[in-house]
């Protein structure tokens, strides 16, 4: 599934930082991310917005940041590339650990799937990695990719696509309103169109047309059907 989403270098950095923060502290906040990447909180917010648009993270206003399933996958993959590169540079070429780590950091973003797989193959042949290495999860496997559930937020759906509602993540009045309008678990939705300025959007649900703003749609988790 990651193959369909092309992430810029900095996006991958954000994703990695969030992934690591969640692993270490159990949660990721904007300030923590800014600290670990050494950049301003305002630029982190912009990056998060992009990740949100691509359905990789979920963020409630002012709340902690969570990775979606596809977010976790994408982050794991970046992480894994890093490991493989490090092992390759360090074990086979004999690069110093520190340099290997730094270089891995830069190369991981541009490494092609083919080179990645060749490296993995090479490392396996030379017994540098074990069977349960993360890499096996990311070896090209089209069948599995298709099997993976395509979950994302309703606002990232394109016009004409159909999905099934999994969860309303809004709170209070808005959540109740959305559910009263028939947007509860299992409801089929189709994106009919967008307003001239791109927001709000029109969807078809339970046989009628409903409009909602992008930020409202961003709180509805759906699965492509």
């Amino acid at each position: 599934m990651e193959a369909k989403i092309t992430l810029s270098e900095s996006m991958e950095d954000y994703l990695e930082a969030i992934f690591n923060l969640i692993k270490e502290n159990g949660s990721a906040r904007v300030t923590d991310i800014a600290n670990s990447l050494g950049i301003a909180a305002s630029s982190v917010n912009q990056g998060l917005k992009k990740l949100n648009e691509q359905g990789l993270i979920k963020q409630q206003k002012y709340g902690p940041i969570k990775l979606t399933q596809s977010g976790v996958q994408a982050a794991e993959k970046v992480n894994c590339k890093h490991q493989i590169l490090y092992l390759f540079l360090h074990k086979t070429l004999g690069v110093e650990p520190e340099t290997a780590d730094q270089d891995a950091c830069s190369i991981e973003h541009v490494l092609s799937q083919q080179s990645f797989e060749k490296m993995v193959d090479y490392l396996i042949e030379n017994n540098y990695i074990e069977e349960q290495n993360c890499a096996f999860k990311f070896m090209e496997n089209e069948e599995e990719e298709k099997m993976a559930a395509k979950e994302f937020m309703l606002d990232s759906m394109s016009v004409g696509s159909k999905a099934e509602v999994l969860k309303i993540e809004s709170k209070g009045r808005l959540k109740r309103k959305l559910m009263d309008m028939g947007l509860n678990r299992g409801a089929r939705v189709e994106v009919k169109g967008k307003a001239p300025m791109g927001d709000p959007i029109e969807i078809k649900v339970r046989g009628y047309s409903l409009s909602l703003r992008q930020d409202e749609a961003a709180e509805i988790l759906v699965k492509e059907v």
Binding site: L178, Y208, R213
Partner: peptide
């Protein structure tokens, strides 16, 4: 109070 735009578009 958050305003919302969850509105039916009647035929």
């Amino acid at each position: 109070e958050r305003s919302h735009f969850v509105m039916e578009l009647p035929p």
